[in-house]
């Protein structure tokens, strides 16, 4: 099912785009599995997604752990730990 991904901060810069629509295979059931799938594209994706301890995620604008099922979410955000305030 089509899913919109948005990237922020150095993840966005490494990937080289603000976001994209993807249509992963059915076996890609969690955020972590989706990151594995994206990582096989190599280049900036492999660089940005290699160290999962430096990544955080939000599904439909809610913070969630990386092992969260994608379910029928419409938007996934991938970013480093937040540093506002």
């Amino acid at each position: 099912m089509a899913l919109d991904i948005v990237y922020f901060a150095w993840v966005r810069e490494a990937v080289g785009r603000d976001g994209e629509r993807v249509d992963p295979p059915a076996r890609v059931a969690t955020i972590a599995a989706l990151l594995d799938w994206l990582e096989t594209r190599g280049g900036g994706y492999a660089e940005a997604l290699a160290d999962r301890s430096r990544l955080r995620a939000a599904l439909d604008q809610t913070f969630v752990p990386l092992d969260t099922p994608l379910g029928d979410a419409r938007e996934l955000a991938i970013f480093p730990p937040v540093t506002g305030g």
Binding site: F8, A9, W10, A58, F63, A77, F79, P80, P81, V82, T83, G84, G85
Partner: peptide, 26 residues
């Protein structure tokens, strides 16, 4: 302010006089 720093989706990038730029680490 404590919760805002860890639970609001903002990211800081620093730029220095010598041209360096870097994303602030949590």
């Amino acid at each position: 302010i404590d919760w805002l720093k860890t639970k609001a989706p903002f990211w800081k990038r620093e730029a220095f006089a010598d041209g360096r730029r870097r994303w602030v680490e949590a």
